[in-house]
Design a protein around this nucleic acid. Structure first.
Length: 101
DNA sequence: GCTTAGGCCATCA
DNA sequence: TTGATGGCCTAAG
């Protein structure tokens, strides 16, 4: 368990519902700018029963980086929708309740 | 919308 | 030590 992972987990755990964060943002907030790819690799390595809201992690365009036919993509989409997001295709649309431009 | 091109960093062959 | 790969990023056509 590295400092990097710990920070990522903390931030992710502290991320409120209805909000998403980009890989770069997450890495930056963790204090490791440029570690976006490691975030992805970290996600890939996460256990399926993890408590972390990995589904709130999207790329900078607020798009899901999974292929649409993958199970992970469907789960992420469903969870995000549960949190108030509107998903069109693989894109996330801001909910009116969300404090996002 | 798309592809290229550059850069970032850990991991594995 | 390279080279390739990965839920990536940004910028530029």
């Amino acid at each position: 368990m590295t400092h990097f992972k710990s920070q990522v987990f903390l931030i992710l755990d502290a991320l409120p519902q209805g909000e998403c964060i980009a890989y770069g943002e997450l890495a930056k907030q963790a204090g490791f700018p440029g570690y976006a790819r490691q975030i992805g690799q970290l996600m890939k390595n996460l256990p399926k029963d993890t408590k972390l809201p990995w589904h709130r992690v999207v790329n900078s365009q607020r798009r899901i980086s999974f292929a649409e036919n993958t199970d992970a993509y469907l789960r992420q989409k469903a969870r995000l929708k549960q949190e108030g997001w509107v998903i069109v295709g693989n894109k996330l649309t801001v909910n009116e309740k969300s404090t996002r431009k």
